[in-house]
Design a protein around this nucleic acid. Sequence first.
DNA 1: GCGACAG
DNA 2: ATCTTGTCGC
Length: 242
Amino acid sequence: MDEGYLRKWFDPQSRTLKDLRALQHEASLMLDLRDGFEELRTVAGIDCSYLDDRIICAIVMLDYRTLEVIGREHVVQKVRLPYIPTYLTFREGCAMSSAFEKLEQKPDVLLMDSCGINHPRRSGMASYFGAVMDHPTIGVSKKILCGEAEVPTEVSEYHELVYEGEQIGWIMKTSKRSNPIIAAPGHKVSMRACLEIVMHCLKGYKLPEPTRLAHLYAAELREELRSGKGHQTTFDEGYQRR
DNA sequence: GCGACAG
DNA sequence: ATCTTGTCGC
């Protein structure tokens, strides 16, 4: 992807929330909720951790059928924006797109720790990122940002997440001991495929493997940086003009 | 105005 | 997200 293009979509530098809101609206108009993939041979999870003023973005690629790890990638950058509900994209998007660009082979579908179309402006990070990068994505989260649903209590039980009269995702009980999780289409993934893909990636834990492993990898990298033994970590300037 | 609010 | 020990339950 062109650097100027990524800067336009992900750089919060000198922009107001009104500007960012306009970008989210623009991205939502680019959404396609039909399955935009052929076969599902690989799946990846992406997640971020933080250390002081730095953000660490980690990606773990898995074989879709066996869920075995077949690749990793990461990037460390300066944090550019505080966390503001409904604007998560502009806090993590720059690092995420940079890490994603480093992947030699892109996954057939990407699972992100965020909302998808289950967002007030239909522009949760998974949807925004997917639309901007033109890649199939799914948003997996632990809390409901918007919408209502019956709460599942038995493992494997799931219900529709509804907002303003329309289904925007699913809420599902994935393990006996944990609270249910929310899954929603990001971009180029249908509501039905979203459910099937996430359920396929479950391995008895609260979160699907891609996202769970990306979370662990991000935490691992964070610890390497903190202990100063970050021989594995690489700092990235990001696509910020300087 | 008040409360809710992905990570 | 992050700061943090033990503890209740399966």
